[in-house]
Design a protein around this nucleic acid. Structure first.
Length: 569
DNA sequence: CTCGGAAACT
DNA sequence: AGTTTCCGAG
C-alpha cells in the first residue's frame, strides 16, 4: 500500500507552506493501482504497479509529497524493511532519525553538512547542525525542526545505545556500530552492490568489508529511496523495543552479545521473512560460506566510514529481492552474533571470508576496540584463531600511540561554512573545507579516561546486580583487555551452532580481570536509584555518579504544550 | 553546547 | 515507540 505523505520535497526549492499533514492513500489518487493485499501473484502486481508507481512518483514530486511504500506492496522497496520496525512498532513506518543520519552520511553531497569523523570509526560530525536539522525537518515535515530538537532526539539514542556523544567535540556523535553492525557481518562482501560515496571499510586495516546498499541517487532525505537495505534484518532497534522490552533500558548491556539476541533474531526473522523478503525467505537458512575474493583495502575514499564502498555503481532502482542478511548472511561459525540490528546489506547474498581475512578483521577489531571505543565483545570467537594483543597497523593519521589519540579539532560551528540554503544552491562542488587549524587535540586515552574507571565500576556493579551477564557491552574494558588479553575460549563446536554457553564463559573470564579498585564506587552506585544507575552507564563521564539534577527533575507541572508552539508558528 | 525530564504528538 | 517541543541546569 502506498501512502502519500504531504511534505516538502526533499530538495525542492524553499519551503513555502506546509501542506496539511494528511495521509492520502495512493489508491485514491490512482484507482488503477493494484494492491497485493489478498492477492497472490505479487510479482505480476509488482510489475504492473511499478509503472503506475513511477507515474505517481512524478505526480508526487510535483506535489511535493513523499511516497512511502510498505513492504507488503511487493514492489520496489523504498525503505529498508527494518526501517518500518514492524515488529516493534506496528504503526511506525517512518524513517528514523538514525537511519536518516546514515543516509546523509552516505551521500557525498552532504559531506559539508555531516560527515564521518576522521580517525574515529563510526563517529560523525555534524558540520552544519542547522542544515541537518532542516533536512530532517523537511523529511519529517517538521518545518520547525532545529538542531536543538534534533539533538534531543539524538540524545534519546544514548540510552538505546544506538549513538553516543563524543565528549568534548561539538556536534560529534558516534554510532555504536559495535552493536549495530560490525560484529554481525564482518566479512560480508556483497558484490554488485552499489556505490556509497562516503563509505569505506569498517576498520581501516580491515580488508574485510561490507557494503552499504546504494542510496537512491536522487535524495538522501530519501524522500524517495534510501536504497536497498536488507529487507530482512534489522530488527535492530526493534529488538530493543520489541521482544526486549524488558531489557530495553533496564539491561542495555545485554544487547550486545547475548545469545538471546541471536535467537531472538532468528525467530524474528524467520517469522517475518515471508513478508519482508517477499517470498525468498527460504534463503535465510543457508549461510553459504565461500572462499575469498578480496580486494585490497585502501580503495575507499573515506576510511572512517563504517561502510565500504563498492567500485561498482549501483544497479539503479531495480528491485533486488531483499534477503535477510541477519540470517542468510551470517556465517554460522560466528558463535557470537548479537542483535541482527543494523545490518544494511543488500540482497545479492554473496559474501566471503577466509582465515587470512579473519585475522585481518580481528586485528582490526582489536584496533577498533581500543581506538574506536568498540566493545571487546565485538571479537567473534573463531576456533583456532588467536589475535595477538596489540599489533594493529594503523593508518598514518591514526598511528599514534594507543595512549594518545590525535585528532583534529572539529570544525566548530563558527568555523564551518555558512552555507545558506546550500541544498538548493550549492552544487556538489568543493564544499570549502573549513581550514583546519594546525592545532591538534591531544586526548589522553585510557588512564585518564574517566569513562574507563567509571565503566569498570559499573561493570562490577552490574555483575552483582544481575549476575553473570553474558552480553555486556564493555567498551571501556579495552584497557584491561589489551593489557592482559584473556585467552580466547573458543567454543568447541561453533559451526552451525550459535552456541551460547561457551560464549558466556569466555565472556566472563574476559571480564573478570581488574575490577577490584572500583568497589567503593560500586557502593555509591548501589545507593543510586536504579533508574539513575542505568543512565549514563554507557556514555558515562566523570560526572556519571554525581547525583545530577536528574531524579529530582523540576516539576514543571502538566500543561498543554502545543499552545506555545502553535503560537510562535 | 550538552543533558535529560516531561508532556504532547503522530 | 519515536520523536517533537520546551526548558532548566551544568
Amino acid at each position: 500500500m502506498w501512502v502519500l505523505r504531504p511534505c516538502h520535497p526533499p530538495w525542492g526549492t524553499e519551503s513555502v507552506a506546509l501542506p496539511p499533514p494528511a495521509r492520502i492513500s495512493l489508491r485514491q489518487l490512482h484507482p488503477s493501482l493494484l494492491f497485493a493485499e489478498g492477492l497472490t501473484d505479487t510479482k505480476l502486481l509488482a510489475a504492473r504497479n511499478r509503472k503506475l508507481i513511477e507515474e505517481l512518483r512524478r505526480v508526487k514530486m510535483k506535489a511535493g509529497c513523499s511516497i512511502v511504500e510498505k513492504p507488503e506492496g511487493g514492489g520496489g522497496y523504498q525503505f529498508p524493511d527494518w526501517a518500518y520496525k514492524t515488529e516493534s512498532s506496528p504503526g511506525s513506518r517512518q524513517i528514523q532519525l538514525w537511519h536518516f543520519i546514515l543516509e546523509l552520511l552516505q551521500k557525498e553531497e552532504f559531506r559539508h553538512v555531516i560527515a564521518w569523523q576522521q580517525g574515529e570509526y563510526g563517529e560523525f560530525v555534524i558540520k552544519d547542525p542547522d542544515e541537518v536539522a532542516r533536512l530532517w525537518g523537511r523529511r519529517k515535515c517538521k518545518p520547525q525542526m532545529n538542531y536543538d530538537k534534533l539533538s534531543r532526539a539524538l540524545r534519546y539514542y544514548y540510552n538505546k545505545r544506538i549513538l553516543h556523544k563524543t565528549k568534548g567535540k561539538r556536534f560529534t556523535y558516534k554510532f555504536n556500530f559495535n552493536k549495530l553492525v560490525m560484529p554481525n557481518y564482518p566479512f560480508i562482501n556483497i558484490r554488485s552492490s552499489g556505490v556509497v560515496p562516503q563509505s569505506a571499510p569498517p576498520v581501516p586495516t580491515a580488508s574485510s568489508r561490507f557494503h552499504f546498499p546504494p542510496l537512491d541517487t536522487h535524495s538522501p532525505t530519501g524522500d524517495v529511496q534510501p536504497g536497498r537495505f536488507s529487507a530482512g534484518s534489522l530488527a535492530a532497534s526493534g529488538q530493543e523495543s520489541g521482544n526486549g522490552a524488558e531489557r530495553k533500558a533496564e539491561l542495555p548491556e545485554l544487547d550486545d552479545g547475548s545469545a538471546a539476541d541471536w535467537r531472538r533474531g532468528v525467530d524474528l526473522l524467520s517469522s517475518r521473512s515471508a513478508v519482508g523478503a517477499g517470498g525468498i525467505g527460504h534463503q535465510k537458512r543457508k549461510p553459504d560460506i565461500m572462499l575469498p575474493l578480496f580486494t585490497r583495502p585502501g580503495m575507499y575514499p573515506d576510511p572512517h566510514s563504517p561502510f565500504a564502498v563498492s567500485p561498482l555503481p549501483g544497479r539503479g532502482g531495480v528491485l533486488n529481492v531483499p534477503i535477510s542478511p541477519a540470517l542468510s548472511l551470517t556465517p554460522t561459525i560466528f558463535s557470537y552474533s548479537p542483535s541482527p540490528g543494523l545490518s544494511p546489506f543488500a540482497g545479492s547474498g554473496c559474501f566471503s571470508f577466509n582465515p587470512e581475512e579473519m585475522k585481518h578483521y580481528l586485528h582490526s577489531q582489536a584496533c577498533s576496540v581500543f581506538n574506536y571505543h568498540l566493545s571487546p565483545r565485538t571479537f567473534p570467537r573463531y576456533p583456532g584463531l588467536v589475535v595477538p594483543p596489540l599489533q594493529c597497523q594503523m593508518h598514518p593519521e591514526e598511528s599514534a600511540q594507543f595512549s594518545i589519540k590525535l585528532q583534529p579539532p572539529p570544525a566548530g560551528r563558527k568555523n564551518r561554512e555558512r552555507v545558506e540554503s546550500s541544498e538548493e544552491s550549492a552544487p556538489v562542488t568543493a564544499p570549502p573545507v573549513a581550514p583546519v587549524p594546525p592545532r591538534i587535540k591531544v586526548e589522553p586515552a585510557s588512564d585518564k579516561d574517566p569513562e574507563s574507571l567509571g565503566q569498570l565500576a559499573r561493570e562490577e556493579e552490574r555483575s552483582q546486580e544481575e549476575g553473570p551477564v553474558p552480553g555486556r557491552t564493555t567498551e571501556e574494558e579495552k584497557g584491561t583487555l589489551f593489557a592482559r588479553p584473556a585467552v580466547p575460549v573458543w567454543p568447541s563446536a561453533p559451526v552451525g551452532t550459535p552456541s551460547e554457553e561457551p560464549l558466556e564463559v569466555a565472556e566472563d573470564s574476559e571480564d573478570r580481570p581488574g575490577r577490584e579498585p572500583n568497589a567503593p564506587e560500586k557502593k555509591e552506585d548501589a545507593l543510586m536509584p536504579p533508574k539513575l544507575r542505568l543512565k549514563r552507564r554507557w556514555n558515562d563521564g566523570p560526572g556519571a555518579h554525581q547525583p545530577s539534577k536528574n531524579g529530582a527533575a523540576l516539576w514543571r507541572g502538566p500543561g498543554p504544550r502545543g499552545l506555545a508552539a502553535a503560537a510562535d508558528a
